[in-house]
Structure formats: C-alpha cells, structure tokens
Design a protein around this nucleic acid. Structure first.
Length: 211
DNA sequence: TATTCGATGTGCT
DNA sequence: GCACATCGAATAC
C-alpha cells in the first residue's frame, strides 16, 4: 500500500549537480503531481541526459532562447516543451545557473492514481503502455506548458526518494529520437523494467551499473 | 513481429 | 519553410 510518509522530497542540492549523475540517480525515485482531484505518483524508470553546449542534441546547445531559457536556470525547476505538433516532454533542470542542461523523463511506472492516469491517456491496450514514453508520461500526468518552469521544491510537482534505500541495476544505452549526438551513451533505465520505452536500441545495452 | 507513415503546430534558420 | 528529445494506426512480411 502506498504511503507518502515513506518518502522524502529531494531538495535543490540534488538537482544542482552534474547532469549525468542526476539522470542516473533519478531512477527509482518517485514523481508526485498534486491537484484538486488527487495525487498522481509514479516511479521513474528511464531518463536521458542533455548536456548543454557540449551536446549537439541539447536544446541549449547553441544559445539561450525564449523556449530553452529554463534550462539555463539553477537546477531544481521543470522544463516542459511542445513537440511534433501534439505532445509535450517533461525535463528536470540540472547544474548551476548559466549551464543549459536537463534530464528528460522518458518512462515511469504508475504507483498511485492509476485510474486517473488511464482516464488521461484515453485508449489503452496494455497496462505497460500507459507511461512508457516521454509524452505518454505527460499525457498520463496531465502535464503541459502550464507546468513549465515550476519549482520542484514546492508542493505541486516534486520528486521523492523512499526512506528505505533499494539497490538497482541501471542499463546504459544511446538516446532515442535524435540525429545529432546519437551515439552518446546518455540514456539510463532500470534493467528489465516493463515500463521502459519499447525500442530496438534497448538491445544495444552499452554497460550496466549497480547503484 | 517489424517497419512505415500521417497528424500536428511551434520555434528557429 | 522545415525540422522536431512522439504516438499509434496501417501496412508489409
């Protein structure tokens, strides 16, 4: 049974660190979204790192614009952007102010409020297709541009860690859906978790890390 | 089971 | 004008 008191909210110092470290350590953490209707909770199982001006796939690779501006803020806020005319992607901003970097949440495992997530998603064939993709997660959690530039240290959207620490195995692979920087090993997911994106790149696991 | 393709609209060149 | 950190239906095998 899910109980919020078994979890501790991550603070700003967690996010204001090296992006690759944050991307790995976000796995196994729990993302909360609170609204009048109730709480949505899910375990993060897949992430991607986007590394500022050294990473050609990163929205903040070239320069600061109106869209990517949140990425340049101090870590601990959200960066939500609109993509392919239909969808949103949710990122957690990392590093210190001035470095345009973030972690994309690619896959989560529903924990609480699952009926609301189903309703938000519409037609679903299988349970594990509910949130195994960055825009599927946004649909299930009703995340859109109103959730851009939100403080993860506040009460509306935040991420917590379980009081009981669990050891996990992380698989490292290439990122999905990009052209530039496609060979960089910046995608991380929990080994053998069914809520990770289904993709042929999952067969090309580069390394495994125990965390 | 694997691969292709259309929908959709915003931001950037 | 075109590319895009996607999804899901349609098509091919």
């Amino acid at each position: 049974m899910f109980n919020e008191s078994d979890y501790i909210k991550l603070n700003k110092s967690f996010y204001s660190r090296d992006t690759v470290t944050v991307a790995k350590e976000l796995l196994g953490k729990y993302i909360f979204k609170k609204s009048g209707k109730g709480h949505l909770v899910a375990k993060i199982v897949e992430t991607e790192a986007y590394l500022g001006d050294e990473d050609p796939a990163c929205h903040a690779f070239r320069k600061i614009t109106k869209r990517n501006e949140p990425m340049f803020e101090d870590g601990g806020i959200t960066y939500v952007y609109f993509i392919y005319g239909n969808y949103y992607c949710f990122n957690v901003v990392t590093e210190k102010q001035g470095i345009g970097s973030a972690v994309l949440i690619r896959g989560v495992e529903p924990v609480s409020g699952i009926q609301s997530m189903r309703k938000n998603r519409g037609v679903i064939h299988k349970d594990c297709d509910l949130t195994n993709g960055p825009s599927k997660f946004c649909l299930a959690f009703n995340i859109d541009k109103k959730d851009n530039r939100e403080y993860l240290t506040k009460e509306r959207i935040f991420i917590s860690k379980p009081k009981k620490k669990k050891s996990i195995i992380i698989s490292v692979a290439k990122r999905i859906g990009i052209k530039e920087g496609a060979d960089l090993p910046y995608r991380y997911f929990m080994k053998d978790n069914p809520y990770v994106t289904k993709h042929k790149l999952n067969k090309e696991i580069l390394t495994e890390i125990k965390l």
